[in-house]
Amino acid sequence: MIRLGGKRCLFVGLALLMLLLAGCSGEPYLSTLTPQGENGEMLLDLMLLTTALMSLVTIVVVIIFIYVSTKFRRTKAKENLIPKQVEGNHKLEITWTVIPIIILLIVAVPTVSATFKLDVNQEKIPEDAIQINVTGKLYWWEFEYPNEQIVTSQDLVIPTGERIYLKLKAGDVKHAFWIPALAGKIDTNTDNENYMWIHAYKEGVYYGKCAELCGPSHALMDFKVKAVSKEEYEKWIANMQKPTEEPTDAVAKAGQEIFAKSCVGCHAVDSNDPRPEAARIAPNLSNFADRERVAGIKDLTPENVKAWLTDPEAMKPGNKMTGTYNLSAEEIDAVTAYLLTLSKENQ
Results as ranks from 00 to 15, higher is better:
162 E>K: 05
200 A>Q: 04
237 I>A: 03
201 Y>N: 15
167 K>M: 11
144 E>Q: 14
133 N>W: 10
157 V>D: 05
172 D>N: 15
172 D>T: 00
163 R>Y: 09
145 Y>F: 15
239 N>W: 09
192 N>G: 02
144 E>A: 11
195 Y>I: 06
173 V>Y: 00
242 K>M: 12
206 Y>M: 12
224 K>T: 13
185 K>H: 13
213 L>M: 13
174 K>H: 01
191 D>K: 02
195 Y>L: 07
182 L>R: 01
197 W>N: 14
187 D>C: 00
199 H>S: 07
184 G>M: 12
139 Y>A: 02
141 W>L: 01
159 P>E: 05
142 E>V: 09
223 F>Q: 02
125 I>S: 11
225 V>T: 13
196 M>Y: 12
178 W>P: 00
152 T>P: 12
155 D>I: 02
198 I>E: 07
181 A>W: 00
215 G>Y: 14
212 E>N: 14
156 L>D: 08
146 P>T: 03
156 L>K: 02
140 W>F: 09
222 D>T: 14
242 K>F: 06
126 P>N: 03
236 W>R: 08
221 M>F: 08
145 Y>A: 01
151 V>M: 06
126 P>V: 10
183 A>I: 05
134 V>A: 04
161 G>S: 06
188 T>C: 02
187 D>H: 11
212 E>F: 14
201 Y>S: 05
218 H>S: 14
180 P>R: 00
220 L>T: 12
182 L>I: 02
237 I>G: 08
135 T>S: 08
127 E>P: 07
158 I>D: 05
213 L>R: 10
172 D>S: 07
239 N>P: 06
159 P>R: 10
230 K>T: 13
188 T>G: 04
223 F>Y: 09
163 R>L: 12
126 P>C: 07
128 D>G: 04
153 S>D: 13
235 K>T: 15
206 Y>V: 10
163 R>T: 07
236 W>P: 08
205 V>C: 06
150 I>Q: 03
193 E>G: 02
230 K>N: 14
239 N>D: 15
152 T>A: 01
227 A>T: 02
212 E>M: 13
179 I>A: 03
137 K>Y: 10
239 N>F: 10
167 K>S: 15
194 N>E: 03
229 S>W: 11
131 Q>P: 01
226 K>A: 09
159 P>S: 07
160 T>R: 04
186 I>Y: 01
148 E>C: 04
163 R>F: 13
131 Q>T: 13
219 A>T: 15
147 N>C: 03
136 G>W: 01
136 G>Q: 01
219 A>G: 10
217 S>M: 09
173 V>N: 04
130 I>S: 04
235 K>N: 14
218 H>M: 05
195 Y>W: 15
135 T>D: 06
140 W>R: 00
218 H>V: 05
191 D>A: 03
216 P>K: 03
203 E>Y: 06
242 K>H: 10
200 A>K: 01
237 I>W: 09
125 I>T: 10
142 E>Q: 14
169 K>L: 08
